[in-house]
Structures are given as C-alpha cells and as structure tokens.
C-alpha cells in the first residue's frame, strides 16, 4: 500500500471512531507548513480527521502526547502508531502512565522514516527545498527550477536502518499490511560506536558529539520516556547540573538523561529528529540498550508482560566488577 492509501485508511478509521463517539480525539500527523516536516495533529471531529496524513516524514513519536495531555482530558484517545510508537505505548502502560483501555491504537507498519537533514545534505546545504514526494523506493526532491531523485534507503534516519520492530506490537486496528518485521541492519554492530575507541580517546569523542548542543532540551521534550514532572536538570535544591554551556554541564545532562532511559528506550529516533543542531543523541541510549540486551536479555516494549530490567533482579545477575 502506498502512503496515500494508508493516509486514506487512517482518515477513514479516525472519522469512524470520532463519528461513533468511541474516542474523544485522534492523535495523528498532518502535513506541516514546510517540506519534510509532518507534524502532530489532534483531530476532535470527523471533519478535522480529513487533515490526517501519512508519509516517511512522520518523525515525531506520538506516544509522547498520551502523557502530556491538558489536565482534565482523560477520555479515550486514538493514536496512530508505527512499531516504535506502539512499543512506547506498551512501555507507558507498564509504567502505569496509561491504561490499555484508555488508548485505541491505529497501527501502521513503518516504512522507515526519512531524515530531512540527510535529504538536505544530499541535494546541497545551500539549496532551497520546496517539496519532497515519496515514489516507491525513491524520493523526488524539488526546489525552484530543479528536481532530484534520491534513493529512499540512503536518506533514512539512522535508527530506522536497524529497527527490529516495524510493525505495531499492539493495535486495535491495522491500516495497510504488516511489512517485513525488521529493516535488516544489525543494531549491535552500530549501537555503541565509541567502544571501538581506545579508552583515552573516548572522552574527546563524547565531548565532540555534543559540542553543538544548545540545551534547548528538545531531545528530552520529544521523548515519550521523559515524563517526569520536574526533570533532574531543572532541580534547584540540590542543583545536580549547572545551567551553563560548560562541557561538564552539557555532558552531565546528556549522560543522566540517557541513563534514565535505560531499559526503556525503543530507539524511536524522536530525539535525533527533534534536535535543531543535528546531534547524534542516540550514541548514549544505543550503548545502554545494547548493554541491557547483553546483560539481561531485554528489549523494551516488545510485550506487555515482561518487567522492565531495572525494576527487577535475579540472584545470578552479573557482578564481576564488584569486589
């Protein structure tokens, strides 16, 4: 099924759910005002549902909005969810942020989302892009007086190459067919690139990766795991992390945020898509999730039964490093 057909399916499902009063709101994507930037959209009426769309640029994780709804809105919500988003919904249910009955999952197999920065880099940083259309395995990029065809798989988001769950793990209805379950890349090969470095080179690589960070916290705020009412960086007494652009402060923020995602991160890539500075935020979360797989055989959000790995223990857990 192509994007248009899936978008049509989403609209029909949303219209039906809203018309029958089964949900208060359908959370989906609508076309943004700039190319390659579909945006979250809240449809409350069947008419509004007509604005819903679907493409390879649906890069926000909508599970994020299930926990950030205005106070007082507690009714049932439908949400458009690809594989990773559904895994985050499962995670939120496990963490008691949401009950399964509160959410109607409109599942869609992910085509592998596209990275607008890669598209821009591929056509040239100085070019103005006025539109980008997916045509099968290709992306047709257009600007004033020029056109260029790119291979879709060359401009995918990093996390989508190694996705292990393109199909939604839970859904109330599925739009389109299920696809190949994975994209074929091996996550363990790329999850922790600094492991290859000599320990003495790692701190420099770590610092360099985050040197452009402006601490806007878009990575945190776009993340469906970061729902703390007060984040540790915002705590003032004690103040765990300074407010400055000193490397020590910037790196403390990123280290601790990543650690707080341990055993929970589904590698949805929302953090990297949100970052205005193009920072590879997944360098840290990737390492942690790789460790969690290795040490505890756990991948987040794949089923509703298992217990998150840092909320449980076993007598024979590894402890070789403890004296």
């Amino acid at each position: 099924m192509d994007n248009q057909a899936i978008a049509q399916g989403i609209r029909e499902a949303a219209q039906r759910l809203l018309a029958e009063g089964l949900v208060d709101c359908v959370l989906g994507y609508e076309a943004g005002t700039v190319p390659m930037r579909e945006r979250p959209f809240f449809a409350y009426t069947p008419e509004e549902a007509l604005r819903l769309t679907w493409s390879g640029f649906c890069c926000n994780n909508l599970a994020n909005f299930l926990i950030r709804r205005p106070q007082g809105e507690t009714g049932k919500v439908a949400v458009v969810a690809q594989g990773c988003v559904s895994r985050n919904i499962v995670g939120l249910i496990k963490e008691h942020q949401l009950s399964r009955e509160q959410v109607h999952v409109i599942g869609v197999a992910s085509p592998g989302m596209l990275d607008r920065d890669k598209v821009q880099a591929a056509v040239g940083a100085d070019k103005v892009i006025s539109a980008a259309h997916e045509e099968g395995d290709e992306l047709l990029v257009e600007g004033p007086g020029w056109q260029e065809r790119l291979e879709r798989k060359k401009v995918m988001r990093d996390n989508c190459y190694t996705c292990v769950q393109r199909n939604p793990v839970i859904h109330n209805e599925l739009i389109g067919e299920e696809s190949e379950p994975t994209h074929g890349g091996v996550i363990d090969k790329v999850a922790a690139p600094w492991e290859k470095l000599d320990p003495s080179e790692r701190l420099a690589a770590f610092g360099e990766n985050y040197q452009d960070c402006i601490r806007c916290y878009a990575c945190r705020d776009a993340c469906p795991l970061c729902y703390c009412h007060v984040c540790f960086v915002d705590e003032a007494k004690p103040q765990w992390c300074g407010k400055t652009q000193d490397e020590a402060d910037v790196l403390t923020y990123h280290l601790l945020r990543a650690f707080h995602c341990a055993g929970r991160c589904t590698d949805c890539g929302a953090c990297e898509s949100a970052c205005p500075q193009g920072i590879k935020v997944r360098r840290l979360t990737g390492k942690i999730e790789k460790d969690v797989r290795e040490f505890y055989g756990y991948a987040p959000g794949l089923d509703e039964e298992s217990v998150p790995p840092l909320s449980v223990h076993k007598p024979d857990d590894p402890q070789g490093f403890i004296k």
């Binding site: 922790a192 600094w194 492991e195 320990p199 003495s200 080179e201 790692r202 701190l203 420099a204 690589a205 770590f206 790196l251 280290l255 990543a258 650690f259 341990a262 055993g263 840290l284 390492k287 942690i288 460790d291 969690v292 040490f295 505890y296 790995p309 840092l310 449980v312 223990h313 857990d317 590894p318 402890q319 490093f321 403890i322």
Partner: peptide, 14 residues
Amino acid sequence: RRFTVLKSLLEYVG
C-alpha cells in the same frame, strides 16, 4: 543492575 549499566556507560564515554 543499576551499577552494572552505569559503570559500563561511564567507561564507554571515557
């Protein structure tokens, strides 16, 4: 468990 992940993470970043 927490220390296992933490130690590995901190040594990973230098």
